[in-house]
Every structure is written in C-alpha cells, then in structure tokens.
Amino acid sequence: MLILTCPYCGVAADETELAPGGEAHLRRAGPAAGEAEFEAYMFHRANPRGVHFERWRHAFGCGKWFHAARCTMTLEVFGTYSAQCTAPPAAIFKAILASRPDWTPTPGQPEPPKPAARARKSAAKPVAKGKAKAKTPTAPAAKPAKADAKGKGDAT
C-alpha cells in the first residue's frame, strides 16, 4: 500500500485516501506554441523507470492538491511538497540524490540545481540558520512546504 504524507495537513494517507493526478511540473505551451509543443504538453510523458514527480490530491482528507517524488520501480517515496511551485524544492532533490546518487532526470523532468557549489550552499543553509528546517530534510511530513516557502519564489 502506497502511503504519502500530505504536506498541508500532515496526515500519512494511504492511497485509498488519495487521488492520483499524473505527472507534475508540466509547462503549458503558450499561445504562440506550435503543434509539436502542444502535443508534447498534452501527451508526451517522462514515464520514467525510477524517480517520478507527480501530482496527488488528498481527496478523502483535506482535499488539497500536492506533489510527490516517488520511485516507480520500488514505490519508495522521496518526499511530498506543496503544489504551489513549478519545480521541486532543493530538499526533494537532496533526498532523491541521497537515495539514488546516479539519478539523472528523464527528458521532460525538472533538472536538479546545477552547480555542486550551490547545491552544497543550499544544503548548508538550514543547518546554519538552525531553525525548524534543519530537522530531517528527507522527512516527507510538513517540512517540504517550508522548504518551498524559502525557495525561489515560484508561488505567486
């Protein structure tokens, strides 16, 4: 049974309580886009054997949409995070790379933050600041929402 922790209400919900919503972080093709771009947006999916970013709704709980990073080969969950972002927060990438050091995104998937130096800096930040974020960055519960709140201002 797949269990995901809702980043909003903190409930560890099993899949009967959740509604799957498909691949996450798809960028809608703009009005000027050609047919090929629209086809890619509408139909092409990463469908990876491994790390998958996806949308879920806590349908029989708080009712909110959220994101999850999960392995499609083992059902291992790397973390859940807010729906109010266009790319996974750094903590999620960190959790993925901690478990899958060789992971590289499949075409169409979000790229992890590139330079190693920056990755180290962002990883060090919570420790330096020593607030709630410092605790267990890999834990799925509630924290990723905060990690997102500090991150790059994707929310509007």
Partner: peptide
C-alpha cells in the same frame, strides 16, 4: 510497458504512461 525507456534510448518521446 517499457516502451518509454527504449524510446528514451532512441531519442524520442512517447505518449505513454505505464
């Protein structure tokens, strides 16, 4: 079910989910 992985090797994408 593994078409997406092979398409990835061949350099194109498929409208498939497994």
């Amino acid at each position: 079910g593994h078409s997406s992985a092979l398409a990835d090797m061949a350099g194109f994408r498929l409208p498939i989910e497994s």
